[in-house]
Design a protein around this nucleic acid. Structure first.
Length: 278
DNA sequence: TTCCAGGAGGGGG
DNA sequence: CCCCCTCATGGA
C-alpha cells in the first residue's frame, strides 16, 4: 500500500484501505484512545497520533519504522477484500468496515490483554489494562502510560492484579508469568500452527478462543478464526444452526482458509457495531 | 434481580 | 471424551 514518510510521521492517501476508526475499534487492540477527532495509539512504549487531513491520514510519530510494521502498511488489503467479496456473508461487513487492517502487535502485550478479555466486556478490559499501565508503566505522553515490562509484571502478586480489577483472572496472570517469557513467545514464531496453538492453550487463562486471538493479532496468523459470543450468535443466526464454538471455527476456517482472520475482523466489527446501536 | 460480556478451568459422568 | 458448573466485576 502506498504511504509517504515525512519528517513528523507517515502519510497515507488511500482512505479506503486505512481507516483508524475501523482499525482500532474492530476489537483487535486495546492500547488506543479517541481524543476529539484524532486517535492516539500506544503499543508497548511507543506512541502515535492519527490525524485526518483533507486528502490523507497523518500518523504523527517519531517511531516511523515501528508503526509502518504495526499498521501492516506493506500489505495490500484491496486484494484481500476482493477475495473475500466472493462470499455473500462478507458483503455488508466489508462495506461497513472496509478500512480495517490486522495490526502487528507485540506478542506479550496481546497475550496478557486477551487473557484479561475472557468472559469480560471491552469497556472493562480497557479499564483493567489502563489501571495496569498507570500503576507500572512509564509516562510516554501526557497522561499516557506504556505497557509494563515483563520483569515488572512478573514481580506482582495476585492481590495486585485483583486491585487492578482483573477479578478471578488475577491468578492466571500470576501463573502465566511463570510459564512463559516474551523471548519464549518470540521463539514460537517458527512453529507450525497446530503446535503453536497447542503451546498457547497450555498456558494459564488461555483456551481455544484466546489462543486464536494471540495467533491472529500477535503472530499475524491469517488462518486463525477466533470464535467468541458475538461470532457464535452471528453464525447461528446467519446459517440457522446451533453449532458449538469448535464446530463453528472449523467450518469458518474451512470456508475462508488463509483469509480467515481477516474475514473474522470484518464480521466481528460489523456484528458488534450493529448490536451496540440498538 | 438476573443476565451478559471477545471463556477457561475443573470435576463428574 | 463431553457436559455442566463456577469463577470477579460492573453495566443494563
Amino acid at each position: 500500500m502506498r504511504y509517504q514518510i515525512v519528517e513528523n510521521g507517515i502519510k497515507i492517501f488511500d482512505k479506503t484501505q486505512f481507516n483508524p476508526q475501523h482499525i482500532l475499534e474492530c476489537g483487535q487492540v486495546f492500547c488506543f484512545d479517541k481524543i476529539g477527532e484524532d486517535y492516539i495509539v500506544f503499543p508497548q512504549d511507543k506512541f502515535a497520533q492519527i490525524i485526518e487531513k483533507n486528502d490523507h491520514f497523518l500518523i504523527k510519530t517519531m517511531q516511523k519504522e515501528y508503526f509502518i510494521h504495526f499498521f501492516d502498511l506493506e500489505t495490500d488489503y484491496q486484494t484481500i477484500k476482493n477475495s473475500l467479496m466472493k462470499f455473500d456473508i462478507m458483503h455488508k461487513s466489508i462495506a461497513f468496515g472496509g478500512g480495517i487492517r490486522i495490526l502487528n502487535q507485540d506478542l506479550f502485550e496481546v497475550l496478557i490483554s486477551f487473557i484479561i478479555s475472557a468472559n469480560n466486556n471491552i469497556k472493562r478490559i480497557n479499564v483493567i489494562l489502563n489501571n495496569i499501565r498507570k500503576a507500572l508503566g512509564k509516562e510516554i505522553a501526557p497522561g499516557v502510560f506504556s505497557f509494563p515490562s515483563y520483569e515488572l509484571l512478573k514481580a506482582q502478586n495476585e492481590e495486585f492484579f485483583i486491585a487492578m480489577g482483573a477479578g478471578y483472572r488475577a491468578k492466571y496472570l500470576v501463573k502465566v508469568m511463570q510459564q512463559v517469557t516474551p523471548q519464549t513467545l518470540q521463539k514460537w514464531r517458527v512453529l507450525d500452527g497446530a503446535t503453536l496453538r497447542k503451546n498457547l492453550i497450555s498456558l494459564a487463562g488461555v483456551g481455544p478462543k484466546v489462543a486464536d486471538c494471540v495467533m491472529l493479532f500477535g503472530y499475524h496468523n491469517g488462518d486463525s478464526f477466533p470464535v467468541d459470543t458475538w461470532i457464535e450468535q452471528m453464525y447461528n443466526s446467519a446459517f440457522g444452526e446451533e453449532h458449538n464454538r469448535e464446530m463453528i471455527r472449523r467450518k469458518l476456517v474451512e470456508m475462508f482458509g488463509a483469509l480467515s482472520g481477516y474475514a473474522q475482523q470484518y464480521l466481528f466489527y460489523f456484528t458488534r457495531e450493529m448490536k451496540n446501536k440498538e
